[in-house]
């Protein structure tokens, strides 16, 4: 399935079409226009910060349903957390693919799209990322013993943008104080370990 077909499928899935400029931008987004010199420090523009915040909130939105009242990614500071983590904990390959991902979002004018279109973009990103992660994994399992050493060093391309922003959104949210307490049964000092029966609708323990 080529890129155009995937985009069409995603559009169908959402029961509507993307606007022509968005489709065009998606079709060409593998070629980022800017280049990032090595050694440059990681920093985001205000627009990029807004894109990160909107994507994080779409991944883990604030919910007010009667059976699930819980904060969203923005409420618990996930956007700033993502930027701090990208800066502090990732090396250039990941920082580059993160910036490239953001640039694609700028190309499709993500902030100007409606909610449905934004979700469509994320669905498409998800499918694209899945294919890329699968290819990476296949490459890794093909490597056997010590003698394949050189091969693994060549994998210099960073994890895809969607994988990075999704992981950091989940990490930031589910380890934040409000996120943990709203989502799980938080137990700081269990005092024992034992097999128990899971009750219906029981939340996970977090420690």
């Amino acid at each position: 399935m080529n890129r155009r077909d995937v985009i069409k499928n995603v559009a169908l899935m959402l029961g509507g079409a993307f606007s022509a400029p968005t489709l065009m931008a998606m079709n060409h987004w593998e070629n980022p226009t800017k280049s990032y010199p090595s050694g440059a420090t990681f920093s985001l523009t205000q627009t990029q910060r807004s894109i990160v915040a909107e994507i994080a909130e779409l991944i883990l939105p604030k919910t007010t349903a009667p059976n699930d009242v819980s904060p969203g990614a923005k409420d618990v500071g996930v956007p700033a957390f993502i930027e701090m983590m990208m800066k502090d904990c990732y090396l250039q390959p990941e920082q580059l693919s993160f910036m490239e991902g953001l640039e694609k979002m700028e190309q499709v004018k993500f902030l100007e799209l409606n909610d449905n279109e934004r979700k469509g973009i994320l669905k498409y990103l998800e499918q694209e990322t899945k294919a890329e992660m699968k290819a990476r994994q296949m490459k890794q399992t093909k490597m056997g013993d010590n003698d394949d050493h050189e091969d693994i060093k060549k994998v210099a391309k960073g994890l895809p943008f969607w994988r990075l922003i999704k992981e950091l959104t989940l990490l930031g949210y589910f380890t934040s104080e409000e996120g943990i307490k709203a989502s799980f049964e938080y137990v700081q000092i269990p005092g024992k370990v034992e097999n128990i029966k899971l009750k219906p609708n029981q939340k996970s323990y977090a420690y």
Binding site: D68, L171, S183, S204
Partner: peptide, 25 residues
């Protein structure tokens, strides 16, 4: 062990149902 929220990192999905599902083992 039973999977926790981190199973969501490589799984498909996002949004409120996705978020809710990750609160269960």
């Amino acid at each position: 062990s039973r999977e926790g929220w981190s199973r969501g990192v490589n799984a498909d999905g996002f949004g409120s149902d996705f978020k809710q599902s990750l609160t269960k083992p």
